[in-house]
Design a protein around this nucleic acid. Sequence first.
RNA 1: GCUGGUGUAGCUCAGUCGGUAGAGCGCGUCCUUGGUAAGGACGAGGUCAUGGGUUCAAGUCCCAUCACCAGCCCCA
Length: 730
Amino acid sequence: MIQVQLPDGSVKEYADGTSALDIAKGISERLAKACVAAEVNGTIVDLVRPLNEVPSEGPLQFKLLTEKDAKAVGVLRHSTAHVMARAIMRLYEGVGLAFGPTTGNGFYYDFDLATPISEDDFPKIEAEMQKIANEAEPFERFYLDRDKAIEFCRDLKQDLKVEHMQTGLSAHETVSFYRQGEFVDLCRGPHIPDAGRIKAFKVLSVASAYWKGDANNKRLQRVYGTAFFSKDDLKEYLDQVEEAKRRDHRVLGKQHNLFNISNDVGQGLSLWLPKGASIRATLEDFIKKELLQRGYTPVYSPHIGRVEMYETSGHFPYYRESQFSPIFGHDAGQLVDYWIRKINEGNLQNAEEKQFAETAKIMGCEVAGDALRASTKEDKIKILHDWERTQERYLLKPMNCPHHVQMYKSQQRSYRELPVKLAEFGTVYRRENAGSLNGLLRVRGLTQDDAHLFCTPDQVEEEFKSTLDLVKFVLGSVGLDDYRVQLSLRDSKNKEKYVGSDEGWNSAEATLRHVLESVGLPFTAQEGEAAFYGPKTDFMVKDCIGREWQLGTVQLDFNLPERFNLEYIGPDNKPHRPVMIHRAPFGSMERFVGMLIEHFAGAFPLWLAPEQLRICPVTDNANEYAAKVQAQFRAEGFRVTTDLRSAKVNAKIRDAQLDLIPYMLVVGPKDAEAGAVSIRDRIGGKDLGMLPMAQAIEMLKKEAIERTVRQVVKSKFRSFDEDQGEMFAG
RNA sequence: GCUGGUGUAGCUCAGUCGGUAGAGCGCGUCCUUGGUAAGGACGAGGUCAUGGGUUCAAGUCCCAUCACCAGCCCCA
């Protein structure tokens, strides 16, 4: 017998071999039909799977999942991935199956297939999938011992599955398969009961991917698709994808002259054009004021710093590959640096080393001969390292923290002055892979709205809370109030990727968890996402069409204070180690503005709009009055321009409307006579009528000062980026 | 960085079979002086991404490089 606890708390007993479907049928036939899968003790299982297969102490926590449950759609998508794979195997010869997991809003399946699949092939793949859906065959789970399973897959000529079982699944004694008609796949499951449940799906795109994500491995074709329980949901999703394309900040940025990334300047290096710069400056002014009120002190630091400093902090060794090469003050610097690396790699030939030494000598490195003659690897490296340290070596700064640490150290600190909060819009440089650059969202030079808080261990919780509060406030002020927090923890299996002691990490992670719980912020923990020096809380912010962005971050750091020997004098008159909090509410100005462009689709609210008002004189006769109006609004702090073209007012209004100017001030003889302006609202194109100057100024000022966000999006989109908890891999 | 695709006027794009380049928008000048989404005429703008090659002849075919786009990898 098995004991099952239903969501209402009642516990019932069923015979061994009872499935979720049996239980559902026991409740009602209709419920049984509406069910997709079941959640048992937190894991999702097939409806038809005997429940006694789920190990449990005490009664099974049982819940039926219907089409309405967010978790159910993941099951549907994974099954659709199987159906797609089946369709592709029917259409092509020699299809090798790799993995076919679900993603945030769909699924993909990787195929090892000689024939390239192109977009033109999608209709026939979809047609075949539809056929399979119509056949409505069940998904059947079965088990094999691993050895048998390997034989089985070998017979099926599924070499990748064989390899996976020999490596990734080597610890498993038995493995599960799913059969659906002639299609069999090694798969953990779960699946929907039968393919007839698949009603709305689409093959979306094809791209290349590598077996197990490793570029040294075989190249596969990854076919993406998505599925929903209803055609309406599918359409809504596809509409959202279209809407996202329409909002692309790279397109809008070009159209409205917000920013430019010029090849002549360099990849990933953004140029803020006047209008984009205006948005950024407005945001920066806003934050600066807020920080002053919250006890931060602004500081400035240079764009480069000595390599040694970043060696101490750990940034240089940890991120060497994604940094620009150091700036060497000595001609031989780069050569010696390369030489050391070769020695470290341990495959340096004698002849090669001789050449290094000779060249370095010619370039003026006088210790090159000594290094060549030194007997051990360690001695060589020491000689070269010592020489390097006497030379100038600068790094374009990849992070602001070491600079701020030095500021903290520049004077003796008492516990009385803590927390010290140093804030800077600090520009940092990172050599991101060329292939991952993306408009303003991923750049090589970026400015963080950065600050570092140095506090006593006792202050950590409170300061951490207050920074979370700041992030919430700042996001709210631009109308972003839908977000969740991701608690990014260390990867407990790869501790060597991080600096610092276990105790330090454990207590830092516990502190973050505790604070998040105490302030009641919803959060999800994610292992392996921490920074190398400490755990983070990242704000995952949803924009108005439901997409999630990783923006602000608050990080706790016990390590840099240790590495830089930071101290403060405590009430006991003894030195103590402070704790650092790193935080950036926006993250980077580039990324944040890029996101805002997409969030507002280029139509910024009054307080952020680069051009807030445009004066449209009705005729040339009104130009003189327009100039007076402009001067008055400028004096009140508005960003305003006047359209002086000899065009009809209709044309001026049309252009202002398309330029997404929040308000147009139409002025003609009537207004001049009344000392008024006629206001047109961009939203809805409403004519607000003639208002006396003073009144118009007051009304617009109020909206700007209150940072009112009147409109973000016309359409109603919901989030498709929901975390579905589990990923299904097949 | 890897794989694939793309690169023609300021922007969006057309350019057939290899025969010295075109549209719309924008821009400039002139006419027009109009009250809430496009008034008209004329004009200027291109080393067809860059460098090679094939050819009597290359925007078009081939090779390399660079950049961009999509995906992968990465993201302090």
